[in-house]
Structures are given as structure tokens and as C-alpha cells.
């Protein structure tokens, strides 16, 4: 076995140990550690925003700036793709 393979095995083992420990330390499904924010949003979404879907209310109302950044990312991706492939076409 070459040195490169041994190094790959060691790196893979370290990463696998980290993943296994993270999986073992996960808290149970549906029970967050700090539940104040969740409880506030679940209780007040329908009165404050008038939407029945809480996820959309969080995405577009409570955390609107995140969606603005996401729209910017999409616009940048489209601009980059068009820029790269237009140059390929002209050459």
C-alpha cells in the first residue's frame, strides 16, 4: 500500500469518527434545545401575518432579508452563466 493510500485511509477514518460522534450526540427528533423562538412563531404567525403556512411566513416576512440575498444569488448565477457561455460562443 502506497503512502498516498495510507494517508487517505487516515483522513477518511478521522472524518468518519467525527460524523459518527455527531450522529450519536444529536438530540431527539422534534425536540429543540431552545424552543422560545419556535413557540413564538408557531403561536403568532396566523395573527401577525395572516398566512396559514408558517414556513412561507418566516421566509418572506420574519426573515425577508434572507430571501433578498437568495434572489441576489440567483441573479448573480444567471449573469455568470450567460457571461461564460457567451464568450465560449464567440471564440
Amino acid at each position: 500500500m502506497s503512502t498516498r493510500n495510507i494517508a487517505a485511509v487516515i483522513v477518511f477514518s478521522i472524518v468518519a469518527v467525527f460524523f459518527i460522534f455527531t450522529a450519536l450526540l444529536m438530540h431527539p427528533f422534534g425536540v429543540p434545545d431552545e424552543s422560545d423562538m419556535d413557540d413564538y412563531i408557531i403561536d403568532n404567525t396566523q395573527e401577525e401575518t395572516g398566512a396559514n403556512n408558517g414556513v412561507t411566513a418566516v421566509v418572506f416576512d420574519y426573515r425577508g432579508f434572507d430571501t433578498l440575498g437568495e434572489a441576489t444569488v440567483l441573479f448573480t448565477a444567471v449573469a455568470g452563466v450567460i457571461m461564460i457561455f457567451r464568450r465560449l460562443k464567440n471564440d
Partner: peptide
């Protein structure tokens, strides 16, 4: 219901349809 949420959904939906389609088309 929903206030501005449906309007924002329409705007973002239009942007995402055209954006992703333009990427694949180009």
C-alpha cells in the same frame, strides 16, 4: 389572506422560473 406574502410569492416565482430556464437554455 396573507398580506404581501402572495405578491412576493408571485414575484419570486417569476424570477426563479425565468432564471433557472435561462441557465439551462444558455
Amino acid at each position: 389572506t396573507g398580506g404581501v406574502l402572495p405578491l412576493m410569492n408571485f414575484a419570486v416565482g417569476l424570477k426563479v422560473i425565468v432564471g433557472l430556464f435561462v441557465i439551462v437554455l444558455v
